[in-house]
């Protein structure tokens, strides 16, 4: 089931604007390998869930998949054949804001080749260009 927040402060949000690069959540933190976004976009809760299912079907019981983004932005949409006005529409779906550099998913406990294949399947479900990354150098 697509995820969404349990408690929110306000029911609707302004659209906002995506710009710049990710300055947080832009490195592999939990797993061994990661899938990194290279473009900015709203990724819907359904797309995130589709990616998780694609990876877990492929991995079966091996490894662990970490989802690094959460859809916390409500997106409203007016019903079809509705006249303009009469206030802001109800929430249609939830989305995560993704900027270049954002780590979308991480995988731990599987060999690199299997992780690459799993990420290729996830990348097909994503609305952004992605790339495979390893853990970065640490001192």
């Amino acid at each position: 089931m697509p995820s969404m927040p349990k408690r929110i402060k306000f029911r609707k949000q302004m659209r906002g604007r995506l710009k710049g690069n990710a300055t947080r959540g832009n490195y592999v933190a939990f797993g061994d390998y990661g899938l990194q976004a290279l473009e900015l976009h709203w990724v819907t809760a359904r797309q995130i869930e589709a990616g998780r299912i694609a990876a877990q079907h492929f991995l079966r019981r091996q490894g662990k998949v970490f989802i690094r983004i959460f859809p916390d932005k409500p997106i409203s949409k007016k019903p079809l054949e509705t006249r303009m006005g009469k206030g802001k529409a109800d929430t249609a779906y939830w989305a995560a804001r993704v900027k270049p550099g954002t780590m979308l998913y991480e995988i731990a406990g599987v060999p690199e080749l299997i992780a690459k294949e799993a990420f290729a399947r996830i990348a097909h479900k994503m609305p952004v260009r992605c790339r495979f990354v390893r853990r970065r150098l640490a001192v």
Partner: peptide, 25 residues
């Protein structure tokens, strides 16, 4: 991992069945 269905099974979604609690409302 105990359950078979815990691995990547999709649960049917009923639209509008769940809505988050609005704490300021």
């Amino acid at each position: 991992v105990h359950k078979e269905e815990a691995v990547g099974e999709e649960v049917e979604v009923v639209s509008g069945a769940e809505e988050p609690e609005v704490i300021t409302e």
